[in-house]
Design a protein around this nucleic acid. Structure first.
Lengths: 196, 196
DNA sequence: GACGCTCTGCCTACTAGAAGGTAGAAGGAG
DNA sequence: CTCCTTCTACCTTCTAGTAGGCAGAGCGTC
């Protein structure tokens, strides 16, 4: 609890990395055991079943996201800068290969075949990101600091789709720079002093 | 070969459906055997290994895509209408649940953990769609029938990202209409007589 | 301070079932 | 007769998950 890195944290971290590369069915307890350096059975001590493990992982992933967004909102007030920071976060993750894909994006694509408990958490993540982006768009519309051509909710969904689609393209081409290339015109279009 | 539906076609079709829902590691030969109504071993007669099966599946998927694009280009000349038709194709697939996700989108997200032979075909699919969309954007720029704010290649990547991102969102929310909602403003923005 | 108790974390050893894959026989059509 | 397809029966390896044991930490009681 007070440790910097407990065994269960290490299990969650390695599971996250493994899911990021191959999804829910793309890893096994044996894979985690090898990375963490314990036996398979010991993982069951911390997470009785695979569903427990991934449900907890996605839940924590969302909580970290909520906290990150709160900090971002505290430090940056301009809606456009917030969107830039959000896109920049992913651009950095992809380009330095540290977290080259969103766990929930991968799980969402497998959604129909996911255990319902996990699917529920993944859906909750998307609803959170979506409602947050909508609130950013709404403020930008009020303050006229964002140049919207549709309803804030629609703009939020479109922006999210672009971010996640760009993530996929970067992976498909094996080229991280693609992400920033796609996001640049999208952010530029949202700028009230667009330069096109 | 001359049959409307050979066994190997049925195997490929059921594999496609299964991959669409859970990806490469989300289905087994046993699953296909059950759907097609033959034994596991009979699948190995047509496709010696799982890699052979999925490689062939993606290859055919791309060939069908190439043919579909050719027919589309023959029947529709206006670049904007071509993009509308492409988006409409996916909107229809998603909304009637017939093919609610692109096989290659799902496989691309799992790319790092895919057998290299399959990964190669998936990458080739993305390169094909990308270069086709770029050619559509280029013609739209020349004819001034598309309103581009960036280079045709960048617009093509951004459009593709939006389509695939919207596909993911529709799945994440379990709501097919989200796709059309996201694509509408994107297509409107590309229109030379945009109404915003 | 030594004794016993319980809890935690990890272990070895195991299970049943599913995975991909193989060998070889049976059946049917040309 | 031969080719093609499908079958039964099997193999090996991997899967998630279980049973039970063992060492150490914490803690209260005598």
């Amino acid at each position: 609890m007070s440790d910097l890195s407990t065994t269960s944290d290490e299990i969650l971290a390695s599971a996250r990395t493994l899911i990021m590369s191959g999804g829910y069915n793309g890893f096994s307890y044996a894979d985690i055991a090898e990375v963490v350096g314990i036996r398979k059975a010991s993982i069951h001590h911390h997470f009785p079943s695979k569903v427990d493990l991934v449900r907890e992982l996605v839940k924590q992933y969302r909580e970290v996201g909520v906290a990150g967004v709160a900090i971002l909102e505290q430090n940056v007030s301009n809606p456009l800068d917030i969107l830039r920071a959000y896109a920049g976060h992913w651009a950095k993750c992809i380009e330095d290969s540290s977290r080259p894909f969103c766990v929930c994006a991968l799980l969402a694509s497998e959604l129909p075949s996911l255990p319902p408990e996990v699917a529920k958490e993944v859906t909750a993540f998307f609803r959170f990101i979506s409602s947050w982006l909508t609130s950013v768009m709404e403020r930008g519309a009020e303050e006229k600091t964002l140049n919207l051509s549709s309803e804030p909710g629609v703009e939020a969904e479109a922006f999210l789709a672009t971010v996640y689609g760009a993530m996929l393209s970067a992976r498909a081409y094996g080229n991280g720079e693609v992400f920033a290339t796609i996001l640049a015109p999208t952010l530029n279009r949202l700028s009230p002093v667009a330069t096109h």
